[in-house]
Write a protein that binds this DNA or RNA. Structure first.
Length: 516
RNA sequence: GGCGGGGUAGCUCAGUGGUAGAGCAGCGGACUCAUAAGCCGUUGGUCGCGAGUUCAACUCUCGCCCCCGCCA
């Protein structure tokens, strides 16, 4: 059990066969929000992302591109780094499965599984789809007019027979079920947990974990004819980045991971195979795997044939990074599938960010600028309405924290939006523009309460919209050192008399340039 | 086919054995600090269909229809 306040979370490593699209962006952004939140909340955070670079598909794609596999991987891996950078993602490391540190970790975990008796040499034959890197049962296949067989995914299959090492997965079913039972939060959301449990209950087959049919992968220790199964290779990234097989240092500090964020398509690998591999190697399984949903684009599945994949870079250029980040984690109840509709994005960012929060900040700070000599006003005695709003602002963190511990981003943001709305209601009710003529002391109190509320809102918004939140904190004269969650509440309150810079809007309203 | 999750206002969803809710969109109003934003008010629904239990069901039970996921 960890005594320190550490938090380790991961994205999947992205397969270099694919160009980055909003699916990748989504997973990474969700993790970035959590990583930033935990850091602001006082945790030492390890946030890992990276690329998965081995396998026959990559070998073939490189050949088709006329490149050496490594050069091909270097190029595509860089595009994922570029995306992370463009999204201002705060990962602490970026792992590549072609790195020596990763290869060493794979071979070490393999040796441990051999030592425990969980790996044996056998032979595998069956229908294999190169494109999916998976074997299929005969009954799953479809015979088409060309006389060839195809997998349910549509990938062509070929009959393959090769010697193979196997992992004794069949022996792990009961232990996995007990593990799920002992750790009810291991798989989320609940519907995925149900699926995994019923899958394991039906019984597990041993798993082929090596190949001899291609070369682009991690060599099996003491048997150069074999390459490790890509999923064993890939999953191990989560500990190779911690320095495994050295079990001190980062590994001791951060393992087991607090969260593996994954897409719903790779749940089984993370919740069945991965804990089994780890347990067989005498290592602790991660604490939690969250399977998020997928995005459709304007109601349609993302697909290469439709060519409707969206480049995250263009979204950032059009709508702004903060706006894109906000929409992705705000729009859809996390865990559900969502639809990426341009109109929904514009509605969301205009109503909540521009009209809601952005305008609140600007109207308040402009008023202070014009009527309080550009300085934080001196508050007088607080009235009941003032205390109510401040209490609401201070309660945001307490509502966000449990929501984010369950990856309920939309719930966390709703708590924040509620206070934005309460503040806009308060300013209308208090009407400082009237008080300006009748009671300037009261006006100053109201403006101070608003500024304090905005300070709380900006601090708690940092994980979601780091750029705009930072600009607003600049405009409130809040120092870099006073932006963590420990600065919330009275302790970090704005000091009367502090000179403030000229206010500027941080969330411009989006107006479609193509609209009349 | 088996298992699981759903079908509630135009849209996205919340909800409970006791006369249906929120946000967005729509409509009306007063104000003017502000990003023609904000605030107030308001129009929308036989809560998938049928039957049963109950004083009372959208909420429980059974059957059926439809959608999604996992597995076969």
């Amino acid at each position: 059990m960890s005594t320190g306040r550490t938090y380790y979370l991961t994205t999947p490593i992205y397969y270099v066969n694919d160009k980055p699209h909003i699916g990748h962006a989504y997973t990474t952004l969700a993790c970035d929000v959590l990583a930033r939140f935990k850091r602001l909340d006082g945790y030492e955070v390890m946030f890992l992302t990276g690329t998965d670079e081995h396998g026959q598909k990559v070998e073939k794609a490189a050949a088709a591109a006329g490149e050496a596999p490594k050069a091909f991987c270097d190029r595509v891996s860089q595009s994922f780094r570029d995306l992370a950078q463009a999204m201002d993602v705060s990962n602490n490391d970026f792992i590549r499965t072609t790195e020596p540190r990763h290869i060493a970790a794979c071979q070490a975990i393999w040796r441990r599984m051999v030592a425990s008796g969980d790996i044996y040499l056998g032979a595998y034959e069956g229908w294999y789809a190169v494109r999916d890197e998976a074997y299929y049962g005969e009954d799953e296949l479809e015979k088409r007019a060309d006389g060839k067989f195809y997998a349910p995914s549509g990938a062509p299959v070929e009959w393959v027979r090769e010697p193979s090492y196997f992992f004794r997965l069949s022996a792990w079913g009961d232990r996995l079920l007990k593990f799920y039972d002992d750790h009810p939060d291991f798989i989320a959301p609940q519907s995925r947990r149900n699926e995994v449990v019923s899958f394991v209950k039906r019984g597990l087959n041993d798993l082929s974990i090596s190949r001899t049919s291609f070369k682009w992968g991690v060599l099996v220790p003491d048997d150069d004819a074999h390459i490790m199964y890509v999923w064993l290779d890939a999953l191990t990234n989560y500990i190779s980045a911690l320095g495994f097989p050295d079990e001190g240092g980062k590994y001791a500090k951060y393992w087991p991971a607090d969260l593996h964020m994954v897409g719903k398509d790779i749940v089984r690998f993370h919740t069945v195979y991965w804990p089994a591999f780890l347990l067989a190697a005498g290592l602790a399984p991660p604490k939690r795997v969250y399977a998020h949903g997928w995005w459709t684009i304007e109601g349609q599945k993302m697909s290469k044939s439709l060519g409707n994949a969206i480049d995250p870079h263009s979204l950032i250029a059009t709508y702004g990074l903060d706006q894109f980040r906000y929409f992705m984690v705000r729009e859809v109840p996390f865990g559900n599938d969502g639809d990426f509709a341009k109109q929904a994005l514009v509605n969301r960012i205009n109503s909540e960010l521009a009209n809601g929060f952005g305008n609140l900040g600007l109207r308040t700070l402009s008023f202070i600028g014009k009527n309080c000599d550009g300085r934080v006003p001196e508050p007088g005695p607080l009235e009941a309405d003032d205390r109510t709003l401040l209490a609401a602002a201070e309660s945001v963190l307490g509502r966000m924290r449990p929501a984010l511990d369950e990856q309920q981003f939309h719930v966390a943001i709703q708590a924040w939006v509620d206070v934005v709305n309460a503040a806009n209601k308060y300013i209308d009710e208090q009407a400082p523009w009237t008080l300006r003529k009748t009671n300037t002391d009261r006006m100053k109190t109201v403006l101070w309460v608003l500024a304090e509320t905005i300070r709380h809102l900006a601090i708690t918004a940092q994980p979601f919209v780091p750029g705009a939140a930072g600009k607003l904190l600049d405009q409130l004269g809040v120092s870099e050192a006073a932006r963590g969650f420990s600065a919330l509440g009275d302790g970090g309150a704005l000091k009367a008399g502090t000179a403030l810079p000229a206010p500027q809007g941080v969330f411009p309203r989006f107006v479609d340039a193509t609209a009349a």
